[in-house]
């Protein structure tokens, strides 16, 4: 296998407690720490391990997003990716359009495996990998917790609602990764220096000749209904009494 393409989305960091803007127009992102979507980081780690085992020769990271997504791509290069592509768009891009952009890159660069996070932790859509597989007409393995490359095939264990499902897919293919696939490496300072010299191609979104998808409009945002803090009991007897009081025991 030659080339692995990994998608890296720039999102609000996992540890930030996000809140809805007071006017309901969106989520507060000003001055908030941004990071690689954690699932995407796991996808990149897996790609690097596949390459380090000699089962692939190049790992390419791609992001569709604002100019600042260069930071996340540089982090990806510091982790060990060979080159990066930023498809620049100041406004958010819908999942189907992202899939179509990835498909264009696949056709141009000849990609054997696409590794993506199973969802981005901002919109929680969980769509891009499946959409890409559909329009590419290639296999998908979503929610992967183990990937074994076997020449022109891969055997993938998927985390599904009833347990673990094992499937075999022909390459090229799209795999979306789950949390337990691996633990991503930490980036070391010399790697950050080295990453500055690696190629990062910037392309404007409108240079892509993709069919525009009808977008789903986000009209308003509201905070979720707060649960009220309940009562504290002192001991198990108090807990049992409280449960009986509610008819639950």
């Amino acid at each position: 296998m030659e080339k692995i393409l990994v998608g890296l989305k720039r999102v609000v960091d996992y540890n930030v407690r996000v809140r809805v803007k007071n006017d309901g127009s969106g989520i507060e992102t000003d001055g908030v720490k941004m990071s690689i979507n954690p699932f995407d980081e796991i996808a990149l780690e897996e790609a690097l391990r596949i390459k380090e085992r000699g089962e692939a020769s190049e790992v390419i990271v791609i992001s569709v997003g604002p100019s600042e997504a260069q930071q996340q791509l540089r982090t990806g290069l510091a982790m060990g990716a060979d080159r990066a592509i930023l498809v620049e768009s100041a406004t958010p891009v819908d999942p189907l359009s992202v899939a179509r952009i990835f498909k264009t890159i696949i056709d141009r660069d000849g990609i054997d495996l696409v590794l993506l996070g199973k969802q981005a932790i901002d919109n929680d859509n969980s769509q891009t990998a499946q959409m890409l597989a559909a329009i590419w007409g290639r296999p998908q393995a979503t929610f992967a917790s183990q990937i074994d490359m076997q020449g022109d095939k891969a055997r993938v264990t998927r985390e599904v609602d009833v347990g673990l499902e094992v499937i075999e897919i022909d390459l090229p293919a799209v795999i979306s990764v789950d949390l337990r696939l691996n633990e991503p490496r930490y980036v070391k300072l010399p790697d950050i220096m080295k990453a500055k010299k690696k190629p990062l191609d910037q392309v404007a979104l409108d240079e892509f000749d993709i069919e525009s998808a009808p977008a789903i409009k986000e009209l308003t945002f509201e905070p979720p209904a707060e649960r009220e803090r309940g009562v504290m009991v002192n001991d198990v007897a108090g807990l049992v009494a409280a449960l009986k009081d509610k008819g639950l025991a």
């Binding site: 809805v20 989520i27 919109n123 986000e218 945002f221 905070p223 979720p224």
Partner: peptide, 16 residues
């Protein structure tokens, strides 16, 4: 829900 349920979005799909 978005952001793990930290926000609820009202969304509109294209009418046609």
């Amino acid at each position: 829900p978005v952001y793990a349920g930290s926000g609820l979005a009202t969304v509109e799909t294209p009418a046609d």
